[in-house]
Design a protein around this nucleic acid. Structure first.
Lengths: 148, 148
DNA sequence: CTAGTCAGTTGGAAATCCAAACTCACGGGC
DNA sequence: GCCCGTGAGTTTGGATTTCCAACTGACTAG
């Protein structure tokens, strides 16, 4: 009997397994902005405290954040992005750009200065030629497509 | 009495409101790969049929996909990305890249040829200077930060 | 006439989410 | 000593969402 479903094994799915919920990426956003404490993250994201506690555990378990004791007696922890966590900021930037274009076209709620002096306009390009990634991407290949 | 929470208004949060669940971005992935039909999407994503139906409605309502009748009697629909939907592929590429690096470092399950002839290596850069976006991004500004 | 296709819908159990209250260990003011 | 405030959680009880399998309805192929 044939399998009913065969979810495609792919890195997008694998990554979403870790951060594809309502709050995880917002946690990364807050940490990247320098808010490291539990109550600050609750305040700025709107997540409920129990869910946030669970997400912090999960993100720590998979190596996206690291818990740091900043006070003994009583033990108080704060959270920091690991290098893997910082790399998720690329994802945040593309999400932000999409939202700026399609949901807040008139005044983006948040922008960054870039080290070049301009306001950052993040684009995804091919590392080899510098051309737009999506428009030039074609003919996907790899094990994830073999199963069709 | 001070408000207990004040979720930051930002495009990342707004975008996640639309696609920040377990299945929506996988739907976009499948559509971008040329799978447009309900059963194909069920098969390749693993989403349950009722949830998928609900997500397709939502994605259509917000303008990420478009429903197209391809057969009358019985009415059969297929789904296509709108231009806004295609732009989400940038998000998929950054998610894929992160997953390739951190979850599937040995053999990425999926790659793309790029129009330049190389295998696509997507990077997020500043549109003005071409430098890495994240490393050079600093001093965020805008209404989303005013509330702190 | 039977089996298969296909885009959903339905029903019920299981998991998850949420807001608010509570806990525990402190520090400070009086 | 006693009360209040801070801060990172945990508990609670109820609402919501998700999951899964089975079902529907209108066809088509053999």
């Amino acid at each position: 009997m044939a399998k009913r479903v065969a979810p495609r094994k792919c890195s997008v799915a694998d990554t979403l397994e870790l951060v594809g919920d309502r709050w995880s990426l917002l946690v990364v956003r807050e940490l990247s902005h320098g808010f490291h404490r539990f109550d600050q993250i609750v305040y700025h994201t709107g997540a409920s405290r129990d869910i946030l506690a669970a997400r912090l555990r999960k993100l720590e378990a998979v190596g996206i954040i690291r818990r740091r004791l900043y006070n003994e007696h009583p033990p108080r922890y704060e959270y920091r992005l690991t290098s893997a966590g910082w790399e998720l900021c690329d994802v945040l930037l593309t999400l932000m750009k999409w939202g700026d274009r399609h949901l807040n076209p008139d005044n983006p709620p948040l922008r960054y200065h870039h080290s070049c002096g301009e306001v950052l306009d993040p684009v995804v390009v091919c590392a080899h030629c510098g051309g737009p990634a999506v428009r030039g991407a074609h003919s996907p290949f790899g094990p994830a497509l073999a199963q069709d």
